[in-house]
């Protein structure tokens, strides 16, 4: 395959849009009050955009995602580094973390609400939990994949343990860490909606619940499309960073 214009990624959404438009607006195969037409959703979206409501929800949700993601990722970076580097720490901490990982996300919600109230802290905590595990797991396996031969070069040049970590082990684990960060950010959005669906008065998740209560599927779709676009945008930014940071890798990049 030659180099394709990245815009080909828009072909599928375009087909989807046309199908949606055809089914709802032309063929009338679905009841409009349950499944609004693209035009209706566009107008609603425009309205919400113009009166600033959409923007308000986006800012709140984005703030929560970034805060939760940052907290979860930083803790994962610290813990993952320790667990990856030191077997005793792994024996100590890993079983407990693996058990926590297997708790379904929603199981945390009642507990966090009870413990932290219904404000920002429980939401950000939930998002941080969601972001933590992919970053942690990927970083640990990345550190463990570090080529022993390169570590030996560090020994030969007399690197102190700390220098060994940041000059050899962490760069070698970087591809894994970045993959973990991308998955973690996706998880953060997932957990955001879980948090906002249950207890909030602002944010895209709240928009969904509120629209359900007032039977406004058009607003729901605006929220869903916004989530999709924001999620994609965030991932795209990380992907750009990844491409730049990993330009040294010599891996199969697909045909």
């Amino acid at each position: 395959m030659g180099r394709l214009n990245p815009l080909v990624g828009l072909i599928l959404p375009a087909i989807f849009l046309v199908l949606w438009w055809y089914i709802t607006d032309i063929a009338h195969l679905l009841p409009v009050n349950q499944f609004p037409t693209p035009g209706r959703v566009w107008n609603t979206g425009l309205q919400l955009f113009n009166n600033g409501e959409l923007f308000r929800h986006i800012t709140v949700s984005l703030g929560r995602v970034l805060a939760g993601f940052a907290i979860g990722a930083v803790i994962a970076l610290l813990l993952g580094t320790l667990v990856g580097l030191f077997r005793p720490v792994e024996r100590l901490a890993d079983p407990f973390l693996q058990a926590l990982r297997n708790v379904p996300s929603l199981a945390w919600v009642p507990f966090l609400l009870l413990w932290m109230g219904i404000d920002e802290p429980p939401k950000i905590t939930l998002i941080a939990i969601g972001a933590f595990f992919p970053v942690y797991l990927n970083l640990v396996s990345g550190i463990r994949q570090t080529d022993r031969k390169l570590v030996e070069v560090g020994y030969i040049f007399g690197l102190k343990p700390f220098a060994l970590i940041y000059r050899i082990v962490l760069p070698a684990a970087l591809p894994y860490l970045l993959a973990g960060l991308r998955i973690g950010l996706g998880q953060a959005w997932l957990f955001l909606v879980a948090a906002e669906l249950i207890a909030s008065t602002r944010g895209l998740g709240f928009m969904l619940i509120d629209a359900e209560n007032s039977s406004r599927p058009d607003i729901m779709l605006v929220a869903i499309i916004t989530l999709a676009v924001l999620g994609k945008l965030c991932d795209w930014l990380l992907q750009l960073a990844e491409r730049w940071l990993l330009r040294w890798t010599d891996t199969f990049k697909g045909r």
Binding site: K149, L150, E152, V153, I168, P171, L174, W248, T249, D250
Partner: peptide, 14 residues
């Protein structure tokens, strides 16, 4: 004591 290994063992990110 310095050692040049049998394989180059260069750091791929540098």
């Amino acid at each position: 004591v310095g050692l040049m290994f049998q394989e180059p063992r260069l750091f791929p990110w540098l």
